[in-house]
Computed example of a mutant assay.
Amino acid sequence: MPPAKKRTRTYDPTKIRAAVLAQFGNVRSAVAALTPDQLALPTRLGDWTVRDLVAHLGATLRAVSHLVGLPEPARQDGTLLDWPFAIAAEAPDIAAHARELAGRHPDPDAYLAATEERFTADLAAHPGTRLLATSAGALPLTDYLVTRTVELVVHTDDLNAAVPGLDVPYDRQALAACTRLLADALAARAPGGSTEVRIPPYAVVQCVEGPRHTRGTPPNVVETDPLTWVRLATGRLTWREAVDNAEVRASGERADLSAYLPVLA
């Protein structure tokens, strides 16, 4: 479990719903144009093919449809920041489920279309306050939808990396929510106020034990762009690679975050 959180960031329910649908729509448009040979390409996710990855992208929304079909928990007993630390334990089951879905749905475009239709109907039928029994505890639907932006953005990046020439765009609100949740997860994993992590234009967090900065220029500063941060936070990119390639700017004796990454494996 992560350390105790100081605060929980809130998200606009309407914007989060729109962001999830927009990013999923970006994926659908790209997948519709993939050839059988492209669907058979390997990915950076172990033995997953692109077809398996597409199946998992659909599963990110199917999870919502599954959870709203279960009895509603009596009370909320989880927080949004519990999710990044709970998801790692599910990795083997997730991989097996992706391969099973890929085999069961040979037409990826039809599979994603049906997934989107059901998901849209479920959103219309349930308010953002509706509790879901997730692996991170009982969470409101809106909070769980924030986790879907992480899944969609991270795996859109995996898809772009796997298929040469593919350039699936990132919805701004989806990328913002993903960046903020993963930044807040870092602050929960490494609580403190000695280091300022800047991910413009979406997030700034304080983390790492040590003397707390209160005025002027912080003595320890890390700055990077949103996609580089997403790759660092999920283990797609190592800290050393990012620093050596000047994708991260780090200054100060407590600006090395390698001990705290990835936050979502």
Rank of each mutant, 00 (worst) to 15 (best):
A18R: 04
L232C: 04
D109A: 14
V204W: 11
A188Y: 06
C207D: 05
N26P: 02
L80M: 06
P191Q: 12
A95L: 07
F85Y: 15
A91Q: 14
A125Y: 00
L139P: 06
A102P: 03
A22S: 13
L57F: 12
A18S: 15
T35D: 08
R130T: 05
A188M: 09
A102R: 13
E196Y: 11
H66M: 09
P92V: 03
A18T: 11
T234E: 13
F24G: 01
P219G: 12
V20Q: 07
T8H: 14
E72N: 07
R51A: 05
Y202T: 07
A185F: 04
R17N: 09
L81K: 05
T234Y: 04
V64P: 06
G193E: 10
A162Y: 08
A98K: 05
R215Y: 08
T35S: 13
Q23W: 10
R104M: 12
G103Q: 15
A88K: 11
A33S: 02
D82A: 09
L53Y: 05
A183D: 04
T238V: 00
N160D: 13
A88Q: 11
L53T: 09
D143R: 01
L41V: 00
L57I: 12
D107Q: 15
G235V: 09
N220G: 01
V54C: 14
G128Q: 02
Q173G: 10
R148D: 11
G137F: 09
R118D: 11
D93H: 04
S65Y: 00
G128T: 00
P226W: 04
L131N: 11
P73Q: 06
E151H: 03
A98N: 05
A133P: 02
L45S: 09
V221A: 08
P106C: 11
L45M: 15
D109C: 12
Q206V: 00
A136E: 09
I199Q: 11
W239Y: 00
G235L: 03
A33I: 01
V64Y: 00
D109Q: 14
L181Q: 14
I87M: 14
D12K: 08
S135L: 06
Y111C: 11
A18I: 10
T43V: 03
L45V: 15
V197W: 08
V263Q: 07
S29K: 15
I94E: 08
D184N: 03
A242K: 04
A19R: 13
Y170A: 04
E72I: 13
V163N: 12
S194I: 03
L186M: 07
R240N: 10
A74K: 15
R7E: 13
A121Y: 02
E90G: 04
V68K: 07
E223S: 05
R212E: 15
